[in-house]
Write a protein that binds this DNA or RNA. Sequence first.
RNA 1: GGAGAGGUGGCUGAGUGGUCGAAAGCGGCUUCCUGCUAAGAAGUUGUACGGUCAAAAGCUGUACCGAGAGUUCGAAUCUCUCCCUCUCCGCCA
Length: 385
Amino acid sequence: MLDPRIIREHPEEVKKALARRHAGFEGQIDEWLKVDQENRAAVAELERLRQRKNEISNDVKTGKITKEKAQEESKELKEKVPALEELQRQLDEKGNGMLLGIANAPDPTVPDGKDENENVELKKWGTIPKIDKPKEHDEIAKALGILDFERGVKIAETRFTVVMDMGAKLERALMNFMLDMHAGKGYREVFPPIMVNRDCMVGTGQLPKFDGDFYKCEGENLYLVPTAEVPVTNLYRDEILKEEQLPIYHCAYTPNFRREAGSAGKDTRGYIRQHQFNKVELVKFCLPENSNDEHEKLTLNAEAVLEALGLAYRRILLCGGDMGFSAQKCYDLEVWFPGQNRYREISSCSNFGDFQARRANLRYKPADGGKPRYMHTLNGSGLAI
RNA sequence: GGAGAGGUGGCUGAGUGGUCGAAAGCGGCUUCCUGCUAAGAAGUUGUACGGUCAAAAGCUGUACCGAGAGUUCGAAUCUCUCCCUCUCCGCCA
């Protein structure tokens, strides 16, 4: 979430930055400021009453007043404090809930624009293969007998696919290839739980705003991970690391589960927009001053996979209107699909600044002995399989 | 699933109603001392949000001993509910 202090002190700047998302978040800032002000007033009053309470019990202790007198003095407090506590708790919850629903502010280097048409192409790599009448991947896969869409639907439901024989082997080979590649470049491999609790989902920004996009276990406080970003970024939740421990790089393979609730009718063909898919994810934790550099390096690490596989791709800088909720800056990598005669997203590499760190309470103790500070987090697909 | 034990500061671990944000030890930091393969001495050492201040330091207020609720003038300490961990038994890939 955004820094409450910055919103209080520079509301206009924050609103201006959020306006670049073209999603109406700026209006929520004013609402939050109102709630915040009420909340702070309630806290001040509450602290005053509690101070009085402590004085009374202290006076009993030192024999300054009798118990009877203390009871009498406390009578009013005993009515006021619980009521005020309840009010303050509600205001706090309300303000916090609002903050959790407000997206990250775009970085100044993010281009203006309201949708994907205004993204900026930054680079292209590789040669687009010349193929006579290229076939779609699902045609080829069906012919080879390596993807079975019908049985996937039978076993689960639509958008689930069975991968067979050389297809399964290819899937597994790519997974290993990517993990080995990143692990060789300093990313510590981690295989996390693929179910996470709600705190994790809030920590990385999936919840509360996007409730319904994910699979939740009935009667349990557990969600199937929509990306390894969630368990891996939350590894150090509520911890204070030492500055010397940063940066931390992790790579992780997990299956990913998404309900794709809003995408009915989109990409209904083939192995593209599945409810379950495999991905190797890169996650970084670093000092605030290094996150921009780390973002560039992470994106190059993801690109290296495409280059090693000899696949033509391009890098896109997302405009303000097309960025994900938690990101302050995001590059998409798009790989050439001969059968569709266009580039399609294969990776998304984001710098979250301290947005996730604030939600997940990811801090580090500076080497100079200062107060704990929020670290920065980044992640990128490296890649979706 | 059944039975029992327990959740305290970076760690170990005291603390059963007030003098407890919390003994002690370890670890960390600072200073001092010693010429010998590092030891000793002293001090210091939680987090968040406020106030004071030009600011920092300092001082100061409130909260935090798994979470929530209750009893009380006063709760780490008593009561209730929940969560989690450990041990044993059962079941099981």
